[in-house]
Computed example of a mutant assay.
Amino acid sequence: MRLFFSILAGGLFGAGLHLSGMTDTTKVQGWLDVFGQWDPTLAFVMGGAILPMILAWQLTRGRKPLSGGDFPAPPRHEIGHRLVLGSVLFGMGWGLAGLCPGPSVASLSYGGAGGLVFLAAMLLGMGAAPAIGARIDRIAEAS
């Protein structure tokens, strides 16, 4: 049952990314080009994701998922060096490639070497992140 809901949620997420234009790298880069030919339409996509999530956090408090396990805890509100550095790197990659993790996986369904290269680089970065994060923590503690 859990696998079914996972596949259903992933499929809906991928379809939503495709329909909203989040898998179109030129549309994403247009959204990020605030001082040029700015395309504000993705603001509605983000708002359409953030607002229901706020409601979902409220409705799931104290409840259990139908498929078992637990709902994830709400995110922490602390801002540290890892969050700032990770956000900067994520934003740079998003701006340069026009893709982030979800859309990069969804874009594999219609081909293109760019999506494969991005996905490979993303997986490499995810694999290297624990070691790099530990090194950054040591540097931050020493300062």
Rank of each mutant, 00 (worst) to 15 (best):
L85F: 09
A43Y: 07
G98Y: 01
A120K: 06
E78D: 15
T25S: 09
L42R: 04
P52H: 03
F4G: 12
T25V: 07
W94P: 03
G14I: 04
G36S: 07
A131Q: 03
D70S: 13
P72T: 00
G93I: 08
V88Y: 08
E141I: 02
D39H: 10
L42M: 14
L51V: 14
Q37H: 13
L123F: 14
F71K: 09
V45L: 02
M1T: 00
Q29S: 05
V28R: 00
G14A: 13
M22L: 14
D39R: 10
A113W: 11
T23N: 14
L108N: 08
E141G: 07
H81A: 05
G14K: 01
A129M: 12
P103V: 11
L124F: 10
R2L: 09
G133P: 05
A121H: 02
M1S: 01
W38D: 12
G21P: 08
G21H: 05
V117D: 05
A134N: 12
G16V: 02
F13K: 01
R2V: 05
L85K: 04
P40D: 02
S67M: 14
S104G: 12
T41M: 03
M1K: 00
A49Q: 11
T60F: 07
G98A: 03
F4P: 03
L89I: 15
D137H: 05
G10K: 02
F4Q: 06
P40F: 10
R76A: 08
F13W: 04
G47Y: 07
P101M: 01
G36R: 04
S87A: 15
T23F: 07
I139S: 03
L3T: 11
M92H: 11
A128V: 13
F5Y: 14
L8C: 08
A43W: 13
G111P: 11
A140L: 10
G36E: 10
F44H: 02
T23I: 14
G30C: 09
M92F: 15
R135T: 13
R135F: 13
T26H: 10
I139F: 05
I7M: 08
I136N: 09
I136Y: 13
G14D: 02
H77W: 12
V105L: 15
L119N: 10
S109Y: 08
G102V: 04
W94S: 03
L17G: 06
R76N: 06
A49W: 14
P75I: 00
H81L: 08
Y110S: 15
S20P: 10
A113R: 01
L32V: 06
I54D: 01
P75V: 01
G68K: 10
